[in-house]
Design a protein around this nucleic acid. Structure first.
Length: 798
RNA sequence: GCCGGGGUGGCGGAAUAGGUAGACGCUACGGACUUAAAAUCCGUUGGGCGUUAAGCCCGUGCGGGUUCGAUUCCCGCCCCCGGCACCA
């Protein structure tokens, strides 16, 4: 018997795939396409661990499965290679980021080859390649031309460790998403992208996506749409007006004071002389607090400005306060406070002894315990008394609108995207600053604006990038007037390159466009996108925004990039995420060496439900390795002495087809593996020819090397992936013999094996022969019999 | 605090239009083969009672409920994980 030698077999087929260019795909109008994409990795110095493998195996199983179903499958891979680690490494070791990036890519590529995935490497994409980032810059210019990219000076989140500004999406609980350092507010002139203009469409588009509910919820809450009204309050005795946003215009009669954010421009203007010292002091303190400190203390603080606002509906004068519980960058940075019906306002009013007037009662007209934050019926609200909240919101907003003192309004939590970084290793922003012409976009025929070499990568921390020090690069001529001008020295964030890379795979070498429209039309959008959940509101939101923009300018003909999304779970070791620093990294290289890639592939699937985190067990792969050997030995044995197919073996074969297909389709890949194991356990010592063929094809997506080898042993000359995925005959899936569980008063007492069409009486007769059933029925009368054909019979006895 | 997801043997996990709880694998134990070991193969493996066997009791985080029957549905709790967090 020839024994299973994974090293020889896997090397042989990997070479075959390469030599025959088996994984190279081309546009083929006669074939349906399937675009299966992995989130491309950042090529770090530490290489891949078994956790990375999980998603890559999953997507490859699907790619190969779809290929066997006759699809033209695009399954590419590339590198998200701009980013801070390479740059920080350069600072430490003086190695140019392009050099370390190239080294890391080579190592990653070697490791990815081990997986045996059907990547089409001819389509490899690298975000740091000038031929690629030329188009990243091009997209930026298109946005700039349409007013979606703009420069603004404002306080932004700044990471003192990374020495760069951050997008709101990159701040997690007041800390830098990347390094965990508490972020500071820093006033910087920043490039921004007007993603808020797309807020409604980004929200709307979520509805048609086949994505995990969790990710959709996260994006929805990130966008944070609220409907309400703007209400204009006059400041008593002045010409100033304060506009507030509220989702509860129905509570307007209960507004007993107002609050301005400390940064609000009117604070200084309306504060009375007596209060000016206290207000100035409070504002100063609030401004110096870091966002972490501001979040940490929930204790309400604030100061009275001395000014009063006039409630537009009843003319009542209410005090205007300053407090940092009102945020400058949401709504208008000012609120009307309704302490009776808002928890925060209630707390503030209690602390500063401000009046609390209930204006919403429950539906029985009772005023419940305050603060009562639900909808109800209006009270103490003049002519609106008795209306429901819903009716009153509408009516009051309409009245305000008639009188020019307000209007319906929608607000979003999402802010515009802070897009510039004060670092070296990123795409230069293609803008030139001219003393006469101002901001001038670099003409498209001069793209890419290449990243120059620098001697010193050290970030300046001043809001300028290391590029600012390279005079021969910074100093240039104005494309508009030809005079002396300077280049923009900020670079783009890492997300810029990953927002559109999946388009480039369709046509990676194009020099005239980011990709040929025909290619885009054929391959895009992505049918299945596999990656970790950590990008739920970063990459996945930004990409959707980019695609909607590219749709608007006619570059693509679809407006959602990823039709279906699958988030694979993490693989943990000793209960924790694998990381170099914890020393709990499981290296796939050694496992491949010892057990082979197919064993590791199947174990990655078998370890648990693919969407759930799973704990790595070193022994687990042993069982899978044994399984593969059993398959090998079974086929080997059967070839020498094939079995004759029987009714039973045919049923088993069809059931395997049905089960495996269904479990791949529903991503229950752990149970798809166990279906194979059960099949092998039930099959006896040899298989018939047809069963061997079926088994090998079904196994091919999971264990491609093994399947190719067995397929060849079965006498086939071409690759198993040119075979067709079998279909189960529904008629063969019906069992003719069934096991019926027998219960007495709901307790299972035994089982009977009967023909599938056995009558209830037959089953009952057989059931009453069981000793345990006799015992349980002893001295009792069967008063009712419940029979679910083929499943259970329950005898209810008294 | 709010919004998700989840608690099943020694372990990873199966099974939910309500119908034999623990598939499959790991571990452990016993056996076969071997001079021996490894590998392989066969058996046992939720807990308890029962010398064996037949059989009986308990058991899917906790407490109730609906039902002939609940891991699955409903109500009330506890714990763990993830997201958001003064967003008016």
């Amino acid at each position: 018997m020839s024994s299973y030698n994974h090293k020889e077999i896997e090397a042989k087929w990997r070479k075959y795939w390469e030599d025959s260019q088996a994984h190279k795909v081309e546009l083929d109008p006669n074939k349906p396409k399937f675009y299966c994409l992995d989130m491309f990795p950042y090529p770090s110095g530490s290489g891949l661990h078994v956790g990375h493998w999980r998603g890559y195996v999953l997507s490859d199983v699907w790619s190969r499965y779809k290929k066997l179903q006759g699809y033209n499958v695009l399954h590419p891979m590339g590198w998200d290679a701009f980013g801070l680690p390479a740059e920080n490494d350069a600072i430490k070791k003086g190695i140019h980021p392009s050099v370390s990036t190239a080294n890391n890519i080579a190592n990653f590529k070697r490791q990815l080859h081990e997986i045996g995935a059907m990547y089409d490497w001819s389509r490899e994409v690298d975000t740091t390649d000038p031929n690629y980032y030329k188009w990243t810059q091009w997209i930026f210019l298109q946005m700039y031309k349409r007013g979606l990219a703009y420069r603004k000076e404002m306080p932004i989140n700044f990471c003192p460790s990374c020495q760069t500004g951050l997008a709101n999406e990159e701040v997690v609980q007041g800390e830098c998403e990347r390094c965990g350092t508490p972020v500071e507010k820093k006033n910087l002139k920043q490039w921004m992208l007007r993603i808020t203009k797309y807020a409604d469409r980004l929200l709307e588009g979520l509805k048609k996506l086949d994505w995990p509910e969790k990710v959709i919820k996260m994006q929805e809450s990130w966008i944070g749409r609220s409907e309400g009204a703007e209400v204009v309050f006059a400041v008593d005795g002045t010409e100033y007006q304060i506009t507030v946003f509220t989702t509860r215009p129905d509570t307007l009669f209960g507004a007993t004071y107002m609050v301005l954010a400390p940064e609000h421009e009117l604070v200084e203007k309306i504060t009375t002389e007596e209060q000016s010292e206290a207000v100035a002091e409070y504002v100063k303190q609030a401004m110096t607090k870091s966002s972490v400190e501001r979040m940490a203390s929930k204790e309400k603080t604030g100061v009275f400005t001395g000014a009063y606002g006039v409630n537009p509906v009843n003319g009542s004068k209410i005090p205007i306060w300053v407090s940092d519980y009102v945020l400058i960058d949401y709504g208008s940075g000012a609120i009307m406070a309704v302490p009776a019906h808002d928890e925060r306002d209630y707390e503030f009013a209690q602390k500063f002894d401000l009046p609390i007037i209930p204006v919403i009662a429950d539906l029985d007209g009772q005023v419940p315990e305050l603060p009562f934050v639900m909808d109800g019926k209006l009270t103490n609200s003049d002519k609106y008394d008795g209306m429901t909240s819903e009716e009153a919101k509408k009516a009051i907003t309409e009245e305000l609108e008639r009188r020019g003192q307000g209007k319906a309004s929608v607000q979003y939590k999402m802010r515009d995207w802070v897009f510039s970084r004060q670092r070296y290793w990123g795409e230069p922003i293609p803008i030139i600053h001219c003393p006469d012409c101002g901001e001038v976009p670099v003409p498209e025929d001069q793209l890419p604006v290449r990243l120059p070499d620098v001697d010193n990568y050290q970030p300046t921390g001043t809001g300028e990038s290391p590029l600012a020090a390279i005079e021969e690069w910074v100093n240039t001529t104005c494309p508009s007037c030809g005079g002396q001008a300077k280049r923009e020295t900020n670079t783009m964030p890492q997300w810029a390159g990953s927002c559109w890379y999946f388009l480039r795979y369709a046509d990676p070498d194009n020099n005239d466009a980011l990709a040929d429209p025909e290619q885009l039309k054929y391959w895009l959008p992505v049918d299945l996108y596999v990656g970790g959940v950590e990008h739920a509101v970063l990459h996945l939101l930004y990409s959707r925004f980019y695609i909607k923009f590219l749709y608007d300018i006619g570059v693509v003909d679809f407006d959602e990039p990823f039709t279906r999304l699958f988030n694979q779970g993490m693989i943990t070791k000793d209960g924790a995420k694998m990381s170099k620093s914890k020393g709990n990294v499981v290296n796939p290289d050694e496992l491949v060496e010892h057990y082979g890639a197919d064993s590791l592939r199947i174990y990655e699937l078998f370890i648990g439900p693919p969407e759930v985190d799973s704990e790595w067990m070193d022994n687990g792969i042993e069982g899978v390795y044994r399984f593969i050997q059993r398959v090998w030995n079974l086929v080997d044995r059967s070839l020498k002495n094939p079995a004759e197919p029987t009714q039973e073996s045919e049923k088993r074969r069809h059931k395997l087809i049905a089960t495996v297909t269904e479990r791949i389709e529903s991503f229950k890949l752990n149970t798809a593996v166990s279906a194979f194991m059960e099949y092998i356990n039930a099959s006896g010592s040899t298989l018939d020819r047809k069963s061997m063929d079926t088994l090998v094809i079904l196994l091919a997506p999971m264990a491609p090397h093994l399947a190719e080898e067995l397929w060849q042993k079965l006498g086939n000359e071409s690759s198993v992936f040119l075979a067709r995925w079998p279909e189960a005959d529904p008629a063969m899936l019906v069992a003719d013999q069934v096991t019926v569980a027998i219960q007495v008063n709901g307790k299972t007492r035994g089982t009977v094996d009967v023909a599938a069409d056995a009558s209830e009486d037959d089953v009952k007769a057989a059931a009453e022969e069981i000793t345990a059933v006799k015992n349980a029925l002893d001295g009792k009368q069967v008063v009712k019999t419940i029979y679910v054909p083929g499943k259970i019979m329950n005898l209810v006895a008294k």
